[in-house]
Design a protein around this nucleic acid. Structure first.
Length: 679
RNA sequence: GGCGAGGUAGCUCAGUUGGUUAGAGCGCCGGAUUCAUAACCCGGAGGUCGAGAGUUCAAAUCUCUCUCUCGCUACCA
């Protein structure tokens, strides 16, 4: 228990493409910071590693848009993010960045090493290519309509509207984000990581915690959501994933044939933990290998649930392939934090930005830390509301914690000139109170080591509750008239509780704990000695006024929520002949039912005037079957039939789409005979 | 559709291997108190534990079916 261990703790690398919001903090950085502060307070040797993830096409794309270099973009964001972390009090050993030289070297070395070991395959495939710009288009450089939600501005790797993971060829009407042209498919060769080769050992490692025949971790200590997600991935069969991209921003592929190609961000980013550790070791005269290669060192990754597969499957594969490296002993992934009833969305600007909070609520880092830990999405998605923030600060921090400290310190000054009075005879009840201080402190520690930060913080608050109850039970303000010696004992114990509060809250509320230690004039936080002079207190916490939270709610609701919606550029010019090739008719939907094997598809029969045919269409999320029967619609009838999810669809129903991605039928303005031509 | 995680008091959440009247904090109502930022302390109300069926002497807890939320995944000309 008391032996000192070495820990490498990482927190997900923030992508240097935008600022941080409270969801990031609650999900990864705050729990990591609490854990690290706790470990350090116990004297363990901890490297707390984080940094900006600065590669990837989203950054080059944005650079292009803003007329800057990618380096300028990441420099700006890195500075903002680093400052926000620092101001908020996330206490990294190092906050590094993946654009650094040491990272490029480290990542390249990993690639070369794995390449030499034959860990990769090379595959040639067709990728979109912009002929005018003479370059392959990375996934992010392709914009089109999301096949899932019909959002118009989806990227080739992801739709930011519905969050779906996509591949560029999934997009409807793909266009090049650089030129607006329609890209063509062209062959290119990339390196792939065949993950299926690793299924057997991964399964044993995840299920039993056994690696190479040795017990490496205890799976019972892993969260259910993490193990469940991983099992789901492995049981479905791991795919080969490409780990290089045609792009000029990132870590250059260091082997023959790699010209013009870089490592894909998810390959290079986790290696950033290692390169950051190397830099930190150089700066602090340490040996980085102690933190990554010594099997006695624990490696823990704090992440959000979107990152589980990378940290619990892909990165371990990379580490194991390289050899000598430790695998994580735990990956405590959190779920997501919602905000005022909706998902946090960067693109819709539905978020509480960390740097804005710090500006709007100066010196209230700990208030936010407290609230975010109270509602940490540890087992399920949770919700932040400003009213709840206010209630928790006012009813818990101010009323229970701050108030107890204040009354104790005020009474000490009032009765004993601010000197810690002597501990006289201790009653049975008081003996119990003293024992409780120890018990609660131990409980808090146990809960932290189990990554139950929410419960741990609640337990820490019970110490303040204990203090308030003790004062209410003993009533020193009455006793002072009759039994000053007893009052000395009461305030002595109360002051020790205050001191214990400054200890147990150190990981959770570091600024408050320091402030409290200052009131007590006790920076070491060892037990207070009789006669010790304490300082004049201020208030530990201020109440949050209605106006302050109302202003925040107002700010959220008045901000522009709709994404910047630009109509897509016109497609290439076509001839009249091109147009007349399409045979579009008016028809009436006769029957409609849900596709038996798909959620988003409706199977319909339509009277086209010339025949009655079956059409399958992806509109089930917009229309119920009974709503569409009898509707007159426009149909492209000479489209080649195609099997969709097992049913042959003969034609396509035309739909119009608005900015929200909602669909509407293109119907004649008055009733037209079925088979009527649209031209 | 498949898979994973959830659905427990108004809110945020606990409930271990099934076992007496289902818990905590906050909110609410009532009482007491004045050292304290009208704060603290005591008491109370409030839940058919998502729905239904089954196993059992006994189920929030095990099994099955259904339903809703979140995520991954498939279909989307």
């Amino acid at each position: 228990m008391s032996s000192k261990k070495r820990y490498t703790i990482t927190a997900a690398l923030p992508y240097a493409n935008g600022p941080l919001h409270i969801g990031h903090i609650a999900g990864a950085y705050l729990p990591a910071d609490i854990y690290v502060r706790y470990l350090k307070s116990k004297g363990h040797d901890v490297a707390f590693i984080c940094g900006s993830d600065e590669h990837g096409a989203a950054i080059t794309l944005r650079a292009k848009k803003e007329g800057k270099t990618p380096q300028q973009i990441v420099d700006e964001n890195h500075t903002i993010i680093e400052k926000a972390f620092k101001d908020f009090g996330i206490n990294f050993s190092i906050y590094h960045r993946t654009s650094s030289k040491i990272h490029h070297e480290t990542a390249a070395e990993f690639f070369t090493d794995l390449h030499q070991k034959g860990a990769f395959t090379q595959e040639t495939s067709e990728q979109f290519y912009d002929e005018e710009q003479q370059q392959f288009l990375a996934d992010r450089y392709i914009v089109g309509t999301c096949p899932k939600c019909s959002f118009d501005g989806a990227y080739g790797d992801q739709c930011e509207k519905c969050g779906s993971t996509l591949s560029p060829t999934d997009l409807i009407n793909p266009t090049s984000a650089i030129s607006g042209n329609t890209p063509v498919l062209k062959e290119t060769t990339h390196w792939y990581l065949p993950m299926d080769r690793h299924e057997v050992w991964l399964k044993e490692w995840l299920d039993k915690g056994v690696l190479d025949g040795k017990q490496q971790h205890d799976p019972l200590k892993w969260k259910k959501n993490v193990l469940g997600q991983c099992r789901s991935w492995i049981d479905n069969g791991l795919q080969s994933r490409s780990i290089t991209r045609d792009l000029d921003w990132g870590v250059k592929v260091p082997v023959e044939g790699g010209e013009g190609k870089v490592l894909y961000v998810w390959f290079d980013a986790p290696i950033g933990y290692i390169s950051a550790t190397k830099q930190w070791a150089l700066d602090n005269n340490k040996n980085w290998e102690d933190y990554w290669k010594n099997p006695a060192t624990e490696l823990v990754h704090f992440i959000g649930k979107d990152n589980i597969v990378f940290h619990a499957i892909i990165f371990p594969i990379i580490l194991k392939l390289h050899g000598e490296f430790n695998l994580p002993t735990n990956v405590p992934a959190n779920e997501f934090l919602n905000l005022e009833g909706n998902k946090i969305s960067t693109s819709r600007n539905w978020a509480v930005w960390l740097h804005e909070y710090l500006a709007d609520f100066p010196d209230k880092q700990d208030e936010l830390r407290y609230v975010l830990t109270s509602i940490a999405p540890e087992t399920k998605d949770s919700e932040f509301t400003w009213k709840d923030y206010q209630a928790r600060v006012n009813n818990e921090l101010v009323a229970i914690f701050g108030n107890f400290v204040n009354r104790t310190v005020v009474l000490t000054h009032k009765y004993f000139e601010g000197k810690v009075p002597v501990l006289n005879t201790v009653s049975v009840e008081e003996q119990k109170v003293l024992e409780q201080i120890t018990t609660i402190s131990k409980n808090v520690e146990n809960l932290i080591t189990q990554f139950k930060f929410r419960d741990a913080q609640t337990e820490a608050m019970t110490l303040a509750r204990l203090g308030n109850k003790y004062l209410a039970d003993t009533e020193p303000w009455k006793l002072i008239k009759t039994d000053e010696e007893k009052v000395k004992t009461i305030l002595h114990i109360s002051l020790q509780i205050c001191n214990a509060l400054s200890v147990v809250f150190t990981p959770f509320l570091p600024k408050t704990a320091t402030k409290l230690a200052r009131f007590l004039n006790n920076p070491t936080r060892e037990a207070l000695k009789t006669g010790h002079q304490i300082n004049q207190p201020e208030l530990l916490f201020q109440k949050i006024e209605d106006e302050a939270v109302d202003a925040q709610i107002e700010k959220l609701s008045t901000r522009e929520h709709a994404p910047m919606q630009k109509s897509k550029p016109m497609k290439e010019e076509i001839t009249f002949d091109d147009f007349t090739k399409m045979d579009i008719r008016i028809g009436t939907i006769l029957t409609a039912e849900k596709h038996p094997d798909a959620d988003k598809l409706l199977k319909m029969t339509v009277d086209t005037g010339i025949d009655t045919r079956t059409i399958v269409s992806g509109i089930a999320e917009h229309y119920a079957p009974e709503d569409v029967i009898g509707k007159q619609v426009s149909i492209l009838i000479n489209l080649a039939p195609r099997k969709i999810r097992g049913i042959v669809s003969q034609g396509m129903i035309l739909m119009a789409e608005n900015n929200e991605g909602n669909l509407a039928f293109v119907s004649p303005e008055r009733v037209i005979d079925n088979g009527g031509e649209v031209r």
